[in-house]
């Protein structure tokens, strides 16, 4: 990628790292949350649903501020994790946390839709053949929803690549540490002569986002094909 300058490349690489970890670590929680919302009835379901989707609606700066208050060095969770060596504030790990929180609603939504496409009667059939709940999930449900899980992961990854508001509020805009792709674009636009760099990063952003949307569409269609066996 010769056409990207070292500073620009650094931002893209950091964004990839942040998005990768944000997606990977939130995926199990995404599957659990989607399963709970699609298949279970419990008190507080509406509240959980609201909490998950909140970052989609809240101003990102509010989400970032709440993360800072909670996971900052003096925050209730941040101060507990600090002795364990886990620090979020002004680190790339914080950028990953912010990206995970912001991408979570998209991820849960895609996975939840694929859960809903699976006929529970198939899971009942598996149970009558001797499969325990866990085995039913591993041998019937999960294989059927796998493309949907991937679609959710791709969406969350793309969202994480582009997250700006919550990230800059929570972990600021430190080159090499927390300066992700959108933060870099923002920074380049603040200095004279930075437009060319900004434009190149904008191109990268558009291609990544478009690719992710197409990929998740294709994967979601695969769920439909899988559950009907076509």
């Amino acid at each position: 990628m010769d056409w990207l300058g070292p500073e620009e490349w650094q931002a893209v690489a950091l964004s990839l790292k942040v998005a990768f970890w944000a997606t990977l670590l939130s995926l199990p929680f995404g599957v659990l949350a989607a399963h709970a919302l699609a298949r279970r009835d419990f008190p507080g379901k509406a509240l959980l649903n609201g909490l998950i989707h909140l970052p989609l609606i809240l101003p990102p700066v509010v989400t970032g501020y709440l993360l800072l208050v909670t996971f900052g060095v003096r925050g209730p969770v941040g101060s507990l994790l600090q002795p364990l060596g886990i620090v979020f504030a002004f680190r790339w790990t914080g950028a990953a946390l912010a990206a995970a929180v912001m991408g979570f609603p998209l991820m849960v939504r895609a996975i939840r839709l694929s859960f809903e496409a699976v006929d529970p009667k198939l899971e009942q059939a598996a149970a009558t053949l001797g499969a325990s709940r866990l085995w039913v999930f591993l041998t019937v449900t999960l294989p059927l929803i796998l493309p949907g899980v991937l679609a959710g992961a791709v969406l969350a990854f793309a969202k994480a690549m582009g997250e700006f508001g919550a990230t800059i509020t929570f972990v600021s805009n430190i080159p090499g540490q927390t300066q992700t792709l959108p933060s870099a674009i923002y920074a380049f636009l603040q200095v004279p002569g930075g437009e060319a760099s900004a434009l190149r990063l904008v191109a990268v952003s558009v291609v990544l986002a478009m690719g992710a949307l197409i990929a998740s569409e294709v994967l979601a269609r695969r769920v439909q094909q899988r559950v009907t066996g076509a």
Partner: peptide, 20 residues
């Protein structure tokens, strides 16, 4: 006993074969 511990074979009206 949950279904998986009953040692049954259930033939459903619609077959319910695993599509994958």
């Amino acid at each position: 006993l949950p279904p998986h511990k009953r040692r049954l074979g259930y033939v459903f009206q619609e077959g319910r074969l695993f599509p994958h």
